[in-house]
Amino acid sequence: MSTETFGKWYREDRLPHIFCTGCGNGTVMNCTIKAVDAMGWEIDDTIFVSGIGCSSRAPGYISTDSLHTTHGRALAFATGVKMANPDLHVVVFTGDGDLAAIGGNHFIHACRRNIDLTVICMNNMIYGMTGGQGSPCTPVGKISTTTPYGAAEPAFDLTELAVAAGANYAARWTSYHVAELIKAIRAGLETPGFSFIEALVQCPTAYGRRNKFRQVGEQVEYMRSHAMLLQKKRRLEEQGKDVPDDMFTVGEFVRRYRPALGVRK
């Protein structure tokens, strides 16, 4: 994790990127690159794949071969890349709308196949690129342009979904917990089979602004103060104590070694 090798992963000629001021996607990119760099992978044998949305613009700023595909289909393209050449390390950037809405089917099937991909989902709980419409991960009651009276539908818990669908590794952190996020991504990269890392990110422009987070820092502070470690939540439940409603769980949800697809034997 030296400073010198960090910069080489970015296409310096393309920065600054298009993300809004304070967007957490850039932080998740940093963490991913730190983890990939720490794995000792080379730029030329790593592939970044993404779909459509804010998160999916990330591979365009990374020096490796990268595939910016159609909306929701990143996992399908990544499956093709990985199966056709298992020597390549394939990392997928995706967002909550891309992965859970239009790409939901590809997501559960990639988990089921347990194909050797690492998927990093930047969950900003909103469709950011189209201007802030409700996504399957918008929490109940939150305001977006298509849920002007508050989101009425329950949100997906993507990490639990990955666990249930059969992923070998699943973890959730936020763009505030950078050190933990790097460790989780590293663990995901190391684990053969499907690894899913959900990174909750702040979206000050499309989400925070409509939901009482007036400054970038306020939403980051919310993520810091409302994150509850999975172990703590389980302990509270064992003790029969109440888990506060407004807390979300973070941590490593599963790490297992089921047979995986697309691993070079």
């Binding site: 595909t69 499956t79 890349v81 990985k82």
Partner: peptide, 12 residues
């Protein structure tokens, strides 16, 4: 997904 995987494979 089929055509997606085909395009992905083609790039390798």
């Amino acid at each position: 997904a089929s055509i997606g995987a085909v395009i992905g494979a083609s790039w390798t």
